[in-house]
């Protein structure tokens, strides 16, 4: 019973936080008239900065997928992996650990992108 309540709360906050991050993206596009590519780039860098300040991890604890699904988590995961390795191997780890945590998103995009190109035909 209690667990069901915490699962529902997680869904609610994932929806709200994820939605709000998208609203920030929409505002960057509409108010500041940025292209989608610029918007995504800014959000990724923002995620990296938030991790640097130690603010992104609590957000993930609070909102679950609401914080891990938006592209900001990409920047967060890059810094996270780099810091993890840096703690183990010192300053060299910053470079080697960068993609430690992030590999899933990029490798999935590459593999499925290629499979998609094999399966589907471009639409006119």
């Amino acid at each position: 019973m209690e667990v069901r309540r915490s699962v529902l709360a997680m869904f609610f906050w994932a929806f709200v936080v994820g939605g709000l991050i998208c609203v920030i993206g929409q505002l960057l596009m509409d108010v500041f008239k940025l292209t989608p590519a610029h918007t995504l780039t800014i959000l990724v860098v923002a995620g990296a900065i938030l991790n640097g300040l130690g603010l992104y991890e609590p957000l993930i604890d609070f909102a679950g997928a609401g914080a891990t699904i938006p592209i900001t988590s990409f920047g967060n995961a890059l810094v996270h992996g780099a810091m993890q390795e840096a703690e183990k191997h010192g300053i060299v780890g910053v470079l080697t650990g960068m993609f430690e945590v992030t590999s899933a998103g990029i490798s999935a995009a590459i593999v499925f992108g290629f499979i998609g190109a094999l399966l589907f035909r471009p639409k006119g």
């Binding site: 899933a104 990029i106 490798s107 999935a108 590459i110 593999v111 290629f114």
Partner: peptide, 9 residues
């Protein structure tokens, strides 16, 4: 890239 992405996991 594809191979290393999968192998790592």
């Amino acid at each position: 890239l594809a191979a290393s992405g999968c192998a790592k996991e």
